[in-house]
Design a protein around this nucleic acid. Structure first.
Length: 282
RNA sequence: GGCCUGGUGGCGGAGUGGUUACGCAGCGGACUGCAAAUCCGCGCACCCGAGUUCGAUUCUCGGCCAGGCCU
């Protein structure tokens, strides 16, 4: 599509942002990148913890530069939240200092969920009511924002505005049948294992990074790491990586189904047919 | 041919005379700065037949099937 319209591609995949795992995150190949301009692929180091907000800022800059050249931009990827940030907006919340975030986590662990939630309810009753039980990540975030900004996360979020004007973009969902998707994911993981995914994971592990970093959470890292340390046989590691990927696909389908409900869907599997269906939408 | 053990939801695996653990897979859902993350929810399954019983997945008998052992 980029070639057909003279466009440039912008990454909207939270993991393809990182340069360390080219194979395991299925990043565009060097050959692909040579064909048309690609942006935001492999631009981050695994030690950097990118976020939806940081991505949004970078994406807007990229989109601006591209439009400055008069070229159409094609945002591609699998991170639903990133698309949501672009099209529906992301609350303009000041960055929360790492120290505050860490303090919030510590408070949660110390107080336990019940007490922590009760405290949160005093500052941000809506968040406390809305966030489901067990969801430490969101509970902590809400508290961190409240303590860091003195304002409820829910209030910040209520002011969200889209990053892109509604008339400025069109969205299309690529949604092949699930069974086919699962089959392909299984095959893809197997070929990744053959194509050096293990070496990538070994190199990443050798850097001895904090396990909480986003890049460390890429699908397959944990499974192949267990294979490297002998805790899992190659077959077991592959099966686990495949299973985790299927779980992810399922979550993605749910997001697509509900959050991108109005986007037209292309359900073919092979690129040629997909392209045909895509053109039919225009 | 004989003896033994066992047959529980897609799989693994508890258990009980009456309200049938749990894990995994699968499915549904949520999602505003870790999102390939985080979290919530969903399963009339007890091999077949007869009997005992107010009531059998659970007890008895028979059958079928599986595994093991023996001849």
């Amino acid at each position: 599509m980029a070639e057909a319209v003279g466009g440039e591609i912008v990454n909207a995949d939270s993991m393809q942002l990182y340069r360390d795992l080219r194979v395991l995150t299925a990043r565009p190949t060097l050959g692909d990148e040579a064909r048309v301009p690609h942006h935001l692929y492999g631009v981050a180091d695994a030690t950097d913890a990118w976020s939806a907000g940081r991505w949004l800022t970078a994406a807007r800059e990229a989109l601006e530069r591209i439009s400055g050249r008069g070229a159409p931009a094609i945002v591609a990827g699998g991170t639903g939240l990133y698309f949501h940030a672009l099209t529906e907006g992301l609350a303009d919340i000041p960055p929360v200092a790492a120290l505050m975030a860490a303090a919030a986590e510590a408070a949660f662990d110390e107080q336990g969920e019940t007490v922590f939630r009760r405290r949160l309810a005093e500052g941000d009753p809506r968040a406390a009511a809305r966030i489901m039980s067990g969801d430490r990540q969101r509970l902590v975030r809400a508290w961190a924002v409240f303590t860091a900004t003195g304002r409820a996360l829910s209030d910040w979020q209520a002011e969200t505005a889209p990053a892109l004007p509604a008339a400025g973009w069109r969205g299309v969902v690529l949604a092949p049948p699930r069974a086919e998707l699962y089959r392909r994911c299984d095959a893809r993981l197997a070929s990744m294992a053959r194509a050096g995914a293990l070496d990538e994971v070994a190199a990443l592990l050798a850097r001895d990074l904090a396990p909480g970093l986003p890049a460390m959470k890429a699908l397959g890292v944990a499974a192949f790491a267990d294979q490297l340390t002998g805790r899992l046989s190659p077959a077991e590691a592959l099966a686990r990586a495949q299973r985790e990927t299927r779980h992810y696909v399922k979550r993605q389908l749910t997001w697509l189904r509900h959050r991108m409900k109005s986007w037209p869907r292309v359900e073919a599997c092979d690129p040629d047919t997909q392209w045909g269906q895509f053109l039919a939408l225009a």
